[in-house]
Amino acid sequence: MPKHILRLIILFVIVIGLFLVARQFLIPESFGEYGHYRANSIEENANHDIKYVDRAECAECHDDIAALKQGGPHKNINCQTCHGPGNLHIEDPTPENIVKETEREFCGRCHNKNAARAKLIKQIDINEHNIESKCIECHNPHEPWN
């Protein structure tokens, strides 16, 4: 066999060999334990900090608002849907660590007119409906239709 062909074959064997060796190091240890994925990922995901709290925890301090909300159409909307995750606020209840959006656009995310939205959700065109005022000046988000 000519020298250059032999060297070429050796080069290919080396490259394939390197690939196989690299594979040994690069495949995660727990891969394939349960299925075609890294088994440790389950535990890692389970160990993430929980940021959202139970809504009952909100009601422990804000019982008046919880009661008000219970009577209106937003009763099934979790507090944290509008106020963001509550873990920090539970530990240290200050107004700085909880979201309190008051702009029209924020309400518009659910209530701006859109053909793709279920009719159950009341919709207005935020570019036309009472554009001078903020929504919360007329509507109480915790009891919208009063």
Binding site: P2, K3, H4, R7, L8
Partner: peptide
């Protein structure tokens, strides 16, 4: 790129062409 082989005899080149 020569992989250390300087063989450019007509026989080697013919083989290259065939491969």
């Amino acid at each position: 790129l020569t992989l250390g082989s300087n063989d450019i005899s007509p026989k080697a080149l013919k083989l290259d062409d065939k491969l």
